[in-house]
Nucleic acid binder design. Structure first.
Lengths: 241, 241
DNA sequence: GCGGCTCTATGGTTGGACCACAAGATGATG
DNA sequence: CATCATCTTGTGGTCCAACCATAGAGCCGC
């Protein structure tokens, strides 16, 4: 077993055993190295891995922001790993769109009316309603709106995956604007659909909300000139390669 | 920007630009360090991160297994990160079960009859049919069977997530055996349900297959004494904490 | 030919040194 | 006494030089 893996294993056991918890600090790198009898270099390699997995966050100096703090950001590994794997073209964009539709339609169907995420969604909805908003800003809020919706179901795993997909999705929704015949008309339609989805959730019509979401997403791709998410994915791969 | 991030960025650009591809080797650590004007230590930290994300695989010595090979195993980051985040109890097991049902029911509904994964699934099915199989071995094959099914839809992202969930799921399906009143009876039922699912896919009855999968998974939890996956998750957290 | 040897290049590991940073302790100064 | 500058301490960030372990490549003696 490699030296840095010893450290990883130790950290995992400390966490699983409750001796380390979120919000606490890891011992100093030099202290861990001494305790586990490995070099500080190896400790640092392990911490880099933990950092990439969103388990810790390091800060220099002293004070509240210093030291290696144990966090728990499950989205970090998904986001960064997905971006890299996308670059290899072994993860087709079409798969991402397809997955998005699946996760999001499920999430709105199982949204909990008591979730505070719905309030955030409403705020985003209103932010999108301002008249002279730029297309970039609109799509940004759009993405956040969809993530907020998917959080309302209360499944951390699914909302996390949606949050990670959001970044990947953001890259090409913007590209697709140029394919639209009339952005302001599209924006108006998107606004109306967003409100429709939101209202369906609020009035406890889960299956309707789900259908509207699917239609909303697929409609956007259709209007941008793709007859299906599969083709959209293929086209995007063409253009970015 | 930290030194190791420079390396990560460089690797990402090399891959995105097609100058590095899967199957090729990264330059030697010392060479990268010299080229990017960072220390070898920083290069190694970056490689550790890439390794954790399933992007590379390092080997010492010389020959075909030596050097740092660019792979593309999207399941690696999901699996390891999920295990760690599970340990923090910020990722409830119930969420995992719920996600599994969602992904798997979608996958069988969209399974492609031409997929070779279906042949693998059949082989696994037959392996599970041998009379004197142990419960452990049966559940192992069971897990592989479900992963094979989810691969048949051809969505890399979804099958990858299922593969990662499989590890987490495996931990507690085994635990649940003790809750079963009659294992051999349950095994017989599972076999029959597996064949039912497989046949539904083969006979191009996607919605039936999907329903059977949901019933199959939820039925297992019910028989083990949980009335819903949510309760199962809660119970598992109790027992492992 | 063939077995064993050295050579070489790879990643793996280590200890030590130094830097940048930020808070807290200290002390000079008005 | 209050205030501000300075020093101290402890943190992560970086780098270097050396050494080890591995495993193929090539050479040499037989």
């Amino acid at each position: 077993m490699k030296a840095h893996q010893i450290v990883l294993q130790w950290v995992e056991r400390e966490i699983a055993g409750g001796r380390l918890e979120i919000g606490q600090r890891l011992p100093a790198e030099r202290a861990i190295a001494q305790q586990l009898e490995v070099s500080r270099t190896s400790v640092r390699e392990a911490i880099r891995v933990l950092e990439a997995m969103g388990m810790v966050r390091s800060g220099v100096g002293s004070g509240p922001d210093a030291g290696t703090l144990i966090t728990a950001d499950p989205s970090a590994p998904f986001t960064s790993a997905m971006r890299l794997h996308l670059a290899t073209s072994h993860l087709p964009a079409a798969d991402i769109v397809q997955t998005r539709v699946l996760l999001e339609s499920w999430a709105v169907e199982h949204a909990k009316l008591s979730s505070p995420s719905l309030d955030s969604a409403l705020a985003l909805l209103e932010a999108m309603d301002v008249p002279d908003i730029s297309a970039e800003r609109f799509l940004e809020l759009d993405a956040e709106f969809h993530v907020a919706l998917s959080q309302a179901a209360g499944n951390i795993l699914i909302s996390t995956m949606m949050g990670s997909l959001r970044d990947s999705i953001g890259h090409y929704t913007l590209d697709m604007i140029s394919n639209l015949p009339d952005w302001s008309a599209t924006a108006a339609r998107l606004r109306s659909e967003h409100h429709g989805i939101y209202d369906a959730i609020r009035t406890a019509s889960p299956s309707l909300a789900s259908e509207l979401v699917v239609a909303h997403i697929e409609g956007y791709y259709r209007e941008a000139g793709f007859s299906s998410p599969e083709q959209a994915g293929a086209e995007i791969i063409e253009r970015t390669s």
